[in-house]
């Protein structure tokens, strides 16, 4: 169970107060093992990043935590509650504590920007419309799109849609915010704003943030703790400093932001595995 991994011993590690813990989880799709007996812990109130090349199952991991998929074996504990074992009703209650920014944004296409952001507030609270309006405008101001309040989702660019979706994900100030690739498709200015925003939100409101990304520099700059996934396993974990000091070639490539992920990971599997075993994780 994860604890005996050597990297966890460091003093600076924020792994004492855990909000989400995954234990020995295996998940398969068809005949393909997306996760093979992985265990990981997500510290409360920190920014945890899950990194890895596309197709490794980062989105899948977020969906597992959100209870939209159920693992074959293993536990996913949110403050001690085993999410895969919850019934539908309890699951919906637990999800009120989570906000998720989907990779595609997933804005409701039949509502304008305002109603999209107001939707979770209206569903879960009895706040008067005046207050809802203020909250929505503040969230939009935070993502820099207050001017777009009455546009329809079809009138937004991909990057704008993602930022609106981010505003929606944080509209209820959830305990846990999961960001699926928040940086992809953003222009440099928006990217900087987003990085700051996630950091600020995390500090000001004490959210736990889980960021899925393959944008190395941005992620390293805000993450407190990082897991690197590849081929169904966690090949490295640690604080950004620790990862920067890793000498595994895979991790180096990833951390230094050399060719972005996919290429080296597309070698035939056996070679890759051998290399991994010889490399960083169990040194």
């Amino acid at each position: 169970m994860g604890q005996d991994k050597p990297v966890v011993d460091g003093k600076a590690l924020p792994l004492d107060d855990i909000i989400v813990e995954i234990r020995n989880m295996t998940f398969t799709r068809g005949s393909r093992k997306i996760f093979d007996d992985i265990s990981l812990k997500i510290p409360r109130g920190k920014v945890t990043a899950i990194m890895g090349p596309s197709g490794t199952g980062k989105t899948t991991l977020l969906k597992l935590i959100g209870g939209q998929l159920r693992p074959d074996t293993g536990e996913i504990l949110l403050d001690g509650q085993n999410i895969p074992k919850l019934n539908r009703k309890d699951l919906f209650i637990v999800r009120e504590r989570m906000g998720m920014l989907f990779q595609s944004g997933a804005l409701f296409t039949d509502m304008n920007v305002f109603d999209n952001i107001a939707f979770p507030i209206r569903v879960h609270t009895e706040l008067p419309e005046v207050m809802i309006r203020d909250i929505v405008l503040m969230k939009l101001q935070a993502v820099g799109l207050r001017g777009a309040v009455s546009l329809m989702p079809s009138e937004l660019s991909g990057g704008m849609a993602r930022r609106v979706a981010l505003a929606r994900a944080i509209s209820l100030d959830p305990d846990i915010v999961m960001y699926d690739e928040p940086f992809t498709g953003q222009d440099p200015i928006a990217m900087g704003v987003l990085v700051n925003l996630i950091k600020r939100l995390n500090q000001a409101l004490g959210h736990t943030s889980i960021i899925v990304s393959h944008d190395i520099q941005e992620t390293l700059s805000i993450a407190d703790y990082i897991y690197v996934l590849s081929d169904g396993k966690i090949i490295a974990e640690g604080t950004p400093e620790m990862l920067k000091q890793q000498d595994s070639e895979q991790v180096r490539q990833f951390v230094d932001g050399l060719p972005d992920g996919p290429v080296p990971f597309h070698y035939p599997a056996p070679d890759l595995l051998d290399e991994l075993m010889a490399g960083g994780v169990f040194k």
Partner: peptide, 11 residues
């Protein structure tokens, strides 16, 4: 477009 999944995550 993940709107259904998104609804689920909103609870």
């Amino acid at each position: 477009t993940e709107q259904l999944a998104s609804l689920e995550m909103i609870g």
